[in-house]
């Protein structure tokens, strides 16, 4: 048996072993790569399939291996927002399984996922697809992928900004920021005034006392993984 194999076997934990394995495997395809290939790499900065394994990354973040999925499609069958998606949720998993990371990360599907967990509770393999989608979005953001459903991301950003600043959601601020970001000034014109009239929306935010702590949580978690 080779030295590498010995080293892998000697590793303390499965995780360590996997890391070692990755370190041995990942460099190999590029050792002999031609200049052209290098160029290609530069042109397509985000997706170096062999360099950074998105599927391992997802498995690590979600504590479940993507190979669990046997593509039965039950998740897609029961997904309430399936009709609005560009590709079926099971296909996103398929792309990750096969290494078509770009296709998966650029899909609208993870962004349209409403996180209702219908897929996760019905999955015959007990694969938590909702959690998987969380990781896909997280990685897409980290990699700076162009998000086609940009309004959804803008909404999430605007929402988190309110929390960062006030500690709690501040709907007026949220709507204002969201509208500034999207320049979609007229949507929801029917509901907001109603909310004011009914006294549901407070003009001033509810600031919590320990906003410093919240800010620090945001700061510490904002770094890329």
């Amino acid at each position: 048996m080779s030295r590498k194999a010995d080293e892998i076997m000697a590793a303390d934990t499965l995780k360590d072993a996997k890391k070692l394995q990755a370190s041995f495997i990942s460099t190999e395809p590029f050792q002999e790569s031609s200049k052209e290939k290098e160029k290609e790499k530069d042109n397509n900065k985000l997706f170096h399939i062999h360099e950074r394994n998105v599927s391992d990354e997802i498995s690590e973040r979600t504590f479940q291996d993507v190979s669990l999925c046997y593509q039965c499609g039950k998740c897609s069958a029961g997904c309430p927002v399936r009709y609005y998606m560009d590709i079926a949720p099971n296909k996103v998993v398929r792309f990750i399984q096969l290494g078509y990371y770009e296709e998966a990360l650029k899909s609208e599907t993870p962004w349209l996922c409403a996180g209702c967990l219908a897929c996760s509770v019905r999955c015959p393999k007990e694969f938590d697809l909702a959690k998987f989608m969380d990781a896909v979005r997280e990685i897409a953001i980290e990699k700076g992928v162009e998000i086609k459903q940009e309004n959804i991301l803008k909404f999430h950003k605007a929402f988190l900004d309110q929390i960062k600043n006030h500690g709690r959601s501040y709907e007026v601020g949220l709507v204002a920021e969201y509208k500034m970001k999207t320049l979609d000034l007229f949507q929801d014109v029917d509901s907001a005034p109603g909310m004011f009239l009914k006294g549901k929306l407070d003009l001033l935010p509810h600031n919590i006392k320990n906003r410093k702590e919240i800010k620090s949580i945001f700061k510490k978690t904002s770094g890329k993984k």
Partner: peptide, 16 residues
């Protein structure tokens, strides 16, 4: 108390 993070946090940043 502060916001639980809601959907916006878990769909974009797991740690947060």
């Amino acid at each position: 108390w502060s916001c639980c993070g809601a959907t916006s946090a878990h769909v974009t940043n797991h740690k947060l």
